[in-house]
Design a protein around this nucleic acid. Structure first.
Length: 919
DNA sequence: CCTAGTACGTA
DNA sequence: CGTACGTACTAGGT
């Protein structure tokens, strides 16, 4: 270990805006003027979303802002917009700007988008009724100057030249919006031969065509400038109008009124009352996620990166969009960790673990700890000395020593792989962020630090600058310092996210559900499930033979070999070569999915379709088997990873491999489940399913008496519902009736339409609509609930599960019908699917707790949304079954508003394989 | 090599 | 024109 070093102040290079001593820099932009310039500078047909929304003005404007932020490094920014077409100027002079053409249709709407973008960048947009943007800019520039600021005004309106002085520069577009002329006093003087304050006098004489202000015929800028010099300004000229010689003088005398009017109108107002002063316009951190989202929405894809790269936020070279991380990073001397930890006993420390979080063979090679005092320490675990390692191990394993981690399940695997088990995790910043924003797809620490702390961690700074090798010290100090910065961010994030959770009523969800579940899931992943690899290999051969056969027969029918896995080539065969009727339209032509092919086969009986479908099935099964074989670890087991922060509804997901979509519906598919077997030293596998969990939740949430009674009666649900809907006794509900009802019941939880139902059941839309009518007439509570849940979500902005897990659905108020409808279906489904997810998570905690408490050797292996798979130790079968039934059945008692109104039935099966344990 | 589109497995 | 996922493949860009 290195000698003890003095604490290093660790300022990462997000350059602070105004170094002390340099004046603040205010950038003011005339929004409408610059957007309009951008609109004409960029081809509208090259800048539009796939929906046809034009974005050329938005892009040009935003691109210009990015350049300005980069080049000018303003400390303060604001954009002013005209409030409307009528202003005090149009009242004085009706024709003011009256020559302007109607706003082009593709421009309309783009200003609103620009304002939204500015909002995400936290750049204020200012308007003032009856005044123009330039009046706002004029007022602010005068105020800012008085406060000692340097001012830049970006506008395409020449009237702003009157504002130019030693502290105020106008940036005037000369070509498009990318090239701006810097109008300083000298530049104005050079161009017009007058100081800036005389410019409006000149404009009054010459006129301003863009404002529809006529000038004096025969008087151009040269003459005007000469007069202004000669008579000491416009007042002098007007006073001496009689003495002005020549034809021009005559012309002047004929237009005195117009000149007076011009001068009155082109004077900018500098004493408006504004809600914000220059001091309120300081550059603030952006809402990076929202900015990213809006660029996504604008489909700026290819240019988005360029845009982001220009932005100071990303490059870290701009204004104080983000703060630099400030910590004291200490490299501790040998044996000092114990005391360092002791000094912070009982205080939660942030942890950063470097290593691999793989479930089967995790490993950790570095760890950093950050205390509440801004101090952090880091270790290279390959070099750590025994006294420090034992202090670290004891502290990590101590459940009473509070820890804060980002992605604690990965850390768990990494540390366990190093022989350093972790306990006492009181906060996981990834889980917390997930509960706050469940629709996000990623929760990178770097992004959370920017979003919640406005702090740049600078993780890849050394590497990306190409100087990494130079900076990196052999003892790992540089890496250690970055780790310490992350650990400090994790610790600080816990404070902010803890508050966010509390605001959302989600603290309980984190502390008593998701966080305890991490440990359960980690152990499930580490345990894995045993695989009969020999059997699986045999299955692969068998499916492979089927693939070859089906392909050969398919080729024989059409007389040539095509790639049966290519929808494009299949379309050629089906619709061109074989001339079959067209299927449902998709983006790339006509669908060749299984439903369409089956339908085509029913109509044409063409043998190619039969072989094609058989090939699809076989290739799919082979692919599944091959994937599983690849995933078998050296211990003969498959270790999936359960992702806890992916599904927006609260479900888990499973990856590497996905064990939540192993086939079960077809016989051939079920064969694959025979490969999942009980491991050595265990007696059997046990599966436990909730039956009709989502319908039970619907019954509970809706409070529908009929549906609740259906579950209490213990009768077959779909037959019970069918008998009520069709008005026949339960035992006279035919299988066809029952399956219609089943499809309908489940469809309702997904926001099914009558059209969708008709497709599903291959019946007329009218018949489907009638079926829904009958259903709702008997189960009105369900209808009321479904309409109510959307209404409430629209009001509150979110849906909630029985444990208060929220899903935010801002699109419920979208102007876009497609998005709105989608959001409505999400709102219908989220409370149901999410509550089911809550319930099985509660059940998992209960099962795991009881297994441990009773000292049983049986263990949880898998969760498949409404099913748990356990490995049962010898002699524990009956006790485990009872325990699982008990815990799963009781999960409903944890609901926020009291126990469920319906029982939770659990079906249990036992067997040597997953297949045989089914029921 | 990466992305979009298609298809399909589960609950 | 029914929710929530993950994976694998082709095709077309790079």
């Amino acid at each position: 270990m290195a000698d003890r070093l003095a604490p290093v102040s660790d300022a990462l290079p997000a350059v602070p805006p105004a170094t002390p001593g340099t004046p603040a820099r205010l950038l003011l932009i005339d929004g409408h003027s610059m957007a309009y310039r951008a609109f004409f500078a960029l081809p509208v047909d090259k800048f539009a979303t796939s929906a046809g929304e034009p974005t050329n003005a938005v892009f040009g404007f935003f691109s210009m802002i990015a350049n300005l932020l980069r080049d000018e490094q303003p400390t303060h920014v604001a954009v002013a917009f005209d409030a409307g077409r009528t202003t005090f100027r149009t009242e004085v002079y009706e024709a003011y700007k009256g020559n302007r053409n109607a706003t082009p249709a593709p421009f309309k709407g783009q200003v609103a988008v620009i304002e939204r973008v500015l909002e995400t960048m936290h750049i204020p947009s200012l308007t003032k009724p009856q005044f123009e943007a330039d009046d706002i800019l004029a007022t602010l520039s005068v105020q800012a100057r008085a406060q000692g600021m340097q001012v830049l005004i970006c506008t395409g309106d020449r009237d702003a030249f009157q504002l130019v002085n030693e502290d105020v520069t106008v940036l005037y577009p000369v070509k498009g919006v990318s090239e701006l002329a810097r109008m300083t006093p000298a530049a104005v003087e050079a161009k017009y031969g007058l100081p800036p304050e005389r410019y409006p006098d000149l404009a009054a004489l010459v006129g301003e065509s863009s404002d529809n202000l006529p000038g004096i015929p025969g008087v151009g800028p040269k003459t005007a400038a000469k007069w202004i010099q000669q008579f000491d300004g416009l007042e002098g000229i007007l006073a001496a109008a009689d003495k002005v010689p020549g034809k021009a003088g005559e012309s002047l005398r004929e237009n005195l009124e117009q000149v007076r009017l011009n001068r009155q109108l082109n004077a900018l107002i500098t004493d408006l009352e504004l809600p914000l002063g220059p001091e309120d316009l300081a550059v603030r951190p952006w809402d990076r996620a929202a900015l990213h989202a809006i660029l996504e929405e604008l489909e700026f894809r290819a240019i988005r990166d360029r845009l982001f790269a220009m932005l100071p936020d990303e490059s870290g070279t701009g204004p104080d969009i983000v703060e630099a991380a400030q910590i004291d990073h200490t490299v501790l001397g040998a044996g000092e960790l114990g005391a360092w930890l002791e000094a912070r006993a009982g205080r939660p420390l942030g942890i950063d673990v470097r290593g691999s979080g793989a479930p089967a063979n995790g490993d950790a090679w570095g760890i950093a700890l950050a205390g509440p005092d801004g101090q952090a320490a880091s270790f290279d675990l390959a070099e750590i000395l025994p006294p420090d390692e034992s202090a670290l191990a004891a502290w990590l394993a101590d459940p009473a020593a509070p820890k804060i981690v980002h992605a604690s399940k990965e850390a768990w695997h990494a540390l366990v792989g190093r022989g350093l088990p972790i306990a006492g995790v009181v906060f996981d910043t990834e889980l917390a962020a997930y509960l706050c924003q469940p629709d996000r797809r990623a929760y990178d620490l770097t992004d959370l630090a920017i979003g919640y702390l406005h702090r740049e961690l600078g993780a890849d700074e050394a590497a990306s600058s190409g100087q990494g090798a130079l900076d990196l010290e052999l003892d790992g100090t540089d890496e250690g310092r970055r780790a310490a910065v992350r650990a400090a961010a994790v610790r600080d994030l816990a404070d902010v996210l803890g508050g966010e959770l509390a605001d959302r009523g989600a603290t309980d969800l984190l502390e008593n559900l998701e966080l305890p579940l991490v440990d359960v899931l980690a152990r499930m992943e580490r345990t894995g499930i045993a695989i009969d690899s020999d059997y699986l290999s045999g299955l692969e051969k068998s499916f492979d033979a089927q693939v070859q056969n089906a392909a050969a027969e398919a080729y024989a029918v059409i007389g040539r070999e095509v790639n049966l896995g290519s929808p494009k080539q299949l379309q050629e065969v089906l619709f061109d070569q074989l001339g079959m009727p067209k299927t449902k339209r998709i983006k790339t032509g006509y669908t060749t999915d299984a439903a369409a092919l089956t339908d085509l086969f029913a109509r044409t009986q063409h043998p190619f379709l039969e072989h094609l479908l058989a090939h699809r099935d076989a290739i799919r099964l082979r692919q599944t088997v091959e994937g599983l074989l690849r995933s078998v670890a050296t211990d003969g087991r498959i270790h999936t990873t359960f992702q806890q922060t992916i599904a927006a509804t609260g479900r888990l997901s499973s990856v590497d491999p996905n064990l939540q979509n192993i086939p079960i519906r077809t016989e051939a598919g079920r064969q694959i489940r025979r490969a999942f077997v009980v491991g050595d030293g265990y007696e059997t596998l046990l599966t436990a399913d909730y039956s009709q969990i989502e319908m039970r939740i619907m019954a509970h949430l809706s409070g529908d008496e009929g549906l609740i009674e259906a579950f209490r009666s213990g009768e077959d649900l779909h037959s019970y519902v069918g008998s009520r809907v069709f008005g026949v006794p339960t035992d006279e509900v035919t299988p066809a009736m029952r399956s219609k009802i089943k499809a309908m019941s489940y469809g309702l939880a997904y926001g099914l339409s009558s059209y969708g139902l008709s497709q599903q059941l291959s019946i007329e839309v009218s018949e489907a609509a009638a079926l829904m009518q009958d259903y709702f007439s008997r189960f009105g509570g369900v209808r009321d609930y479904l309409t109510g849940v959307v209404d409430v979500a629209r009001q509150t902005g979110y849906t909630a599960t029985i444990l208060g897990r929220r899903r935010y659905l801002p699109d419920l108020t979208s102007d876009n019908r497609q998005r709105r409808d989608m959001a409505e279906r999400m709102a219908l489904n989220a409370p149901i699917q999410g509550s089911a997810a809550d319930l099985i998570k509660v059940a998992m905690l209960g099962v795991d707790r009881e297994l441990t408490r009773r000292g049983l050797g049986s263990r949880l292996l898998l969760q498949v949304h409404d099913e748990l798979v356990l490995e049962v130790a010898p002699g524990e079968r009956d006790e485990v079954e009872a325990l699982v039934r008990e815990q799963m059945g009781a999960a409903g008692d944890a609901a926020k508003d009291g126990p469920l109104d319906v029982p939770l039935d659990v079906t249990v099966g036992v067997g040597g394989s997953w297949h045989d344990a089914a029921h």
